[in-house]
Design a protein around this nucleic acid. Structure first.
Lengths: 193, 193
DNA sequence: TTCATTTTGTGACATAAGTCAATGGACTGG
DNA sequence: CCAGTCCATTGACTTATGTCACAAAATGAA
């Protein structure tokens, strides 16, 4: 059940077998129907969510009512709003299942509890935050210095199968451009071949 | 010496007086000359840096050789590259003193040491990361949904004195626009009065 | 003060991307 | 199998911002 999670943890921190088994007691599996929400704006995100399989998007809605997708999460990734989970403050984000999905969750309290029993999970916690910081930095830098075409190319390079799994207008939203612009970028790329 | 730092820590976490005094042993004060660098691209950022007074910028240089300012840090803020400090990986950033400044530093090793002696500083560490995440999120969202004029207005609202302290072309770089665009935005704002 | 350097402002023009509107294709539920 | 959505494409047009070039102003060092 928690196979994938265990592998990922082993890759990130040093932890021995019997401590890994603790995870089975703490993380609860759950099925999530396509179209349902794990989190809506204004709510506090009380549980960490690890994606076993399926696909989620997390997005904000700005003052003009436009959606901006901040993250896609697939198998092996974490989703929801890490900052809200840690701080206990209300989130600005929505996270929605785009496919029938399976997740592992742990509530804030249980997480704190686990950290007490097995403090080396603090290292993992840290790594998570660090990765969150890192990927946000990357996206911010990209938004400054890269044009539409290159953003798209970068995405299909780092995340090839996302194109098959979500409608293009969501890709456009993720990349911070209009769906028409994305459509034209794609046309130019195929024309050149 | 560590007065300001102590106040900030007290605001963020619960910690009693005698544990605060530990900070005096761990943090070293340092003067930094205007124009000198705390960090250059490719280096690992080995010390956390707290700004006592003065002003720093941290920036990246993209593939085209253009600088993009990611953060200004003034009194009471932290500067450098948190992600590199934590992960021990080389940084992509430069951080430069824009004024004669005074800082408090602590090396990575001493920091780990302090965390062992006084584990509640972990909460502080966490808060720092959380704030880092939060401010990056804010900037990313702004870059998507806000035009040049509003970005400038937001900045002078949240950080009024920065305008007096750094040249406008750096403000432009921080806001992700050309200096000419910023110049025009400012003209329109004064014309309207 | 004076000269050189840095910083800012402005006009003319170029360009990437957004907006609007129409069309047709693909999917889906009944 | 049909009707109704949903989604993607495309053209025409608009708009915000960038780029280039030059001039004016501010700054700072000698």
């Amino acid at each position: 059940m928690t196979q994938l999670l265990k592998e990922i943890i082993k890759k990130n921190i040093k932890v021995d077998g019997k401590d890994l088994h603790l995870l089975d007691d703490y993380f609860k599996p759950k099925k999530i129907a396509k179209g349902s929400f794990l989190l809506k704006e204004g709510e506090v995100f009380h549980a960490a969510v690890f994606v076993q399989n399926g696909l989620f998007r997390t997005f904000v809605i700005d003052e003009n009512g436009t959606e901006h997708i901040v993250q896609f999460a697939t198998q092996g990734m974490w989703t929801g709003d890490l900052a809200s989970f840690i701080s206990g403050k209300p989130s600005k984000f929505y996270t929605e299942a785009l496919e029938e999905s399976e997740i592992l969750t742990i509530t804030k309290n249980e997480w704190e509890n686990l950290l007490q029993k097995a403090p080396f999970y603090l290292d993992f916690h840290r790594k998570l935050l660090e990765k969150g910081l890192f990927s946000l930095q990357e996206r911010l830098l990209e938004s400054y210095s890269v044009d539409a075409r290159k953003k798209y190319l970068n995405l299909i390079h780092t995340f090839p199968d996302i194109i098959q799994r979500v409608p293009l207008y969501m890709i456009a939203s993720y990349l911070g451009m209009s769906r028409e612009t994305l459509s034209r970028v794609r046309k130019h790329l195929t024309d050149k071949k």
